[in-house]
Design a protein around this nucleic acid. Sequence first.
RNA 1: GAGGGUAUAGCUCAGUAGGUUAGAGCGACACUUUGUGGCAGUGUAGGCCGUGGGUUCGAGACCCAUUACUCUCC
Length: 379
Amino acid sequence: MPQLKFNLQNTDTFSKARAGTITTDHGEILTPIFMPVGTVGSVKAVTQQQLYADVKAQIILGNTYHLYLRPGIEVLEAAGGLHKFNGWQKPILTDSGGYQVFSLAANRKITEEGALFQSHIDGSKHMFSPEKVMDIERSIGADIIMAFDECPPYPSDYAYAKKSMDLTHRWLQRCVNRLAETPDKYGYSQNLFPIVQGSTYKDLREASCQYIASVNAPGNAIGGLSVGEPIEMMYEFTALCCENLPLQKPRYLMGVGTPWDLLACIALGIDMFDCVMPTRNGRNGMLFTTNGVINIRNKKWATDFSVIDAGLPNEISNFYSKAYLRHLFVANEILALQIASLQNLSFYLWLVGQAREQILKNNFANWKNDILPIIKQRL
RNA sequence: GAGGGUAUAGCUCAGUAGGUUAGAGCGACACUUUGUGGCAGUGUAGGCCGUGGGUUCGAGACCCAUUACUCUCC
């Protein structure tokens, strides 16, 4: 199968921001892009129809660990892959479960062979090796498959960070080998993205970038950031990784971030992002809007009948009022979660779309300076 | 009119046999959330315990009076 292709269209004159297109067998992705997280095959509280029409999502995520536990690989294979199962016909990216090794650390054991997990659902034990994860990701059927890595916590001492990085590199080679031995499962290409690790050590990050680049994958990811380190440090290491990863491949910064993080990291040369923030924070009443950040539960919105966000193109943000949405939150209505999630995802996709337009006009840096204080302010 | 019940945080109520800074839930307010075990979590504010007397070393608790609300009967 032909591999995923990245066409770098323009790099901003006054920053390292890039605009490009990623071509997959499920269509094109315009970068920079934000990818809504759909852990168990569903972007929480948002329908696929809304993701297409309102959010204008171009690619969504799934999670290997969670999908493996539920509904299970047998169901996904019987369905003909996740695209057919959940009806999402645009590209899908699956995370490998490496992050769950980190976030579910209480129940794990890592060895050279792989990671031993205990299911958070029923406590049953499961072994994830790089080979097994590749097989699962094949069965899920994502267009972009993340390598199985270990995400070390922050802070990690140098010795552990190096040991962990070396393990991630060896696991990467096993991922590559396994994919080479197994065919694309559903008739379209499935592309491996390796993941840079190295914690917060400059030499390790540089070495990891070099190793990851040597695999010559169709795209590269930066992992192990946004795990509790100071934000300036996150930017510093993102910049370092961008400088050490190939120009002609998309760069994916995993798990980031706030809207202002996105703009900062786009300026450093990142092309792809994912984050639970717009959906999770949305479900907890935090709205990201074109005018700033709103805690919609606050009483000040009780009688504010202006629409949620007139600056967005989607119908829902221009239909419901802030007062009504606040009421839904206070009344614990399910519709609140739906509207807030849709607002936030729409905003994120709008933001990266605007960024892309500005990059193509070589005006990204100026535009970013103008819009940053507006979207960051607390209303 | 007679008899009974209840008055404690914005709301609904706990407060053990009278004993150090009177609690909870909800609400309010603020903060947190970054490859989703999260319709979540953390914190703060807010009470001269209806009012006035009394008993006691000490009363939200006991006694008297009073006011409001409430129930039953006439």
